[in-house]
Structures are given as C-alpha cells and as structure tokens.
Design a protein around this nucleic acid. Sequence first.
DNA 1: ACTTGATCTAGACCTCACTCCAGCTCGTAG
DNA 2: CTACGAGCTGGAGTGAGGTCTAGATCAAGT
Lengths: 140, 140
Amino acid sequence: MATTETPAEPLSIGEVAERTGLSVHALRFYEREGLLVGPVRRTSGGRRRYTTSDVDWLLICVKLRESGMPLADLKRFAELVRHGPGNEAERLRLLDAHRQRVDAQIQALEECRSVITWKVAVYAEHLARGEAEGLWAPTT
Amino acid sequence: MATTETPAEPLSIGEVAERTGLSVHALRFYEREGLLVGPVRRTSGGRRRYTTSDVDWLLICVKLRESGMPLADLKRFAELVRHGPGNEAERLRLLDAHRQRVDAQIQALEECRSVITWKVAVYAEHLARGEAEGLWAPTT
DNA sequence: ACTTGATCTAGACCTCACTCCAGCTCGTAG
DNA sequence: CTACGAGCTGGAGTGAGGTCTAGATCAAGT
C-alpha cells in the first residue's frame, strides 16, 4: 500500500491531480461534497496539502467511481470511515453490494460484447462477399 | 432474428416500451433525436405504430447504449443504415471501435472488482477477528 | 353519450458529475 | 520589486440523457 513515495511529504492539489487522474476542479469539488475522510490540511497561506493517505483514499475513490459507484454512495462510505470504528459491518455491506453491481455490469457488458461481435461478423462477412443484399432493409 | 412474435402486427408505443425496456418518453425522445432508421408509421389518428424491425433495431440500440455507446454514435450509425448500402465498411469500423471500448471497459471493471474484493476481504477479516485496529487511521 | 386510459405535442425541467469563471492571493524565480 | 503561475472561493454553466407537465386527442368499453 502507500503510493510508493516518500511517506511524509505533503502534496499540492496539482500533484494530487496528476497522480490520481482527477482534475484540480474535481478534487476541490470532491472536498466540498464531503467525499474525503478528513479535512485537508492547509498551508498558512490557505493552500491544500494532501497527505499520502489522502491520496490512497482518492485512489480507492477513483476505482469506485470508475466502476460506477455514485458520488452519494462514496460520500456515505467516507462518512462511515470518518466516524471511526464500529461500523465496519456497514462498510462491508456497502462495498459488497457495489461489488455485486460490478459483477452484474461485467456480465451485462459481456453480453453486449457478444451481440456486437455477432453484428461485426455479419458486416465483415457481407463485405467479404461483396456488397449486395439489403443488410438491414427490414432487419439483419 | 425477429422478436419471436407475429411477423406483421404493428405495436403501440407502450408495447414497444415494454419489450425494449425503454420508457415511452425515451422512445419519443430517441425518435426526435433521429436515432431510428426510418420514420415511425402512424395511425390515422396520429399514434405511432412500430414494426417488429423497429423493435429489433431498438433492441440493438439498447445493447449499444447499455455498453456505453453515446447517443451521438448511435445516431451516426442510424444515419449510415438509413442511407442504405455502400457504407458498410464505415458501419463496421464504428461497431468494431465500440467493441474495443467495451473490451477495455470490461478489463477496467475487472480491475476495479479485484480492488474492491481485496477491500471487502480486509473488512471481512477485520470483522471476523473482532473490532480493533485503526482500519483506516492512516490508510488500510 | 360518457368514462377511462393510452397517446399526442412542445417545451420545461431534472440529475449527475463535473467544469469554468471572476477576482483575488500566494509564493517562487529573476 | 516584479512577474507569473498555481491556488483560493463562491457561484454559474455544461453536456448527456432522459423525465415530466399541460392540455388536447384518440379509441375502446358500458
């Protein structure tokens, strides 16, 4: 774990954007929305200083988002983590429910892929044997 | 092919909604947006009458949408089909590009799933051995 | 004829997840 | 000191993809 980096140097918002793939806009937005576990430290001048564990959390967030978890759920999860120990069962339920959704998504995508693949094959064959036949006149 | 139904009875918008999973609103919206291959027939009273090939096309659309094809691409595809034969190569490119995106998506989701699964395991183990340890004090 | 329920149109509205802007401040390099 | 880029805030704007409303019409049942 930990971002394969010095274990203590705080990072600027730009650096965090770079290593999470989120935009600086998105990072500020996530913070406003309460998606981070703790408040982000600031320099005396008011600039955000992210810790490596902030970044680790964000990397998890990115994976959860990427797999379609809505921000509302992410927020809920962050709240649970924020309120410390005692709610692990609920965190587990939340994650596990999401994992199931991801599985369903993968299955759905695989089904879509096979439909598309079939359609691609239809066109490929059609092209191979030269243009002809109403390929979709009523329906392929 | 064909929707395992009488090959000629036209369907109302409600029936089509039922068998495609799209809402009647969505069906009208898709039509306005030019996502259908041909214009939908109407009764003398102005009600839409869908043919089974309309439904077949919509079922393809649903699969493409479900796998993340943007409406704009779907529209492009519909246009190609609408303009009849001669552009099959382009249709093929469009579909094949999409198939590649779907593959990438599946891969990404699988990666997400493994991250989530790992996280679920962490919580499960934690719960099994009884509450303790700052599971996220810095980072899990 | 009356009632009921499905449809019709045009257009306003909605959610989600950001993204961008104005106007200002910070901080580092020359 | 000056410039200049990166960061700050609050709030408005964006784009995708629908969803909903109002007010009218159609069609079938009783």
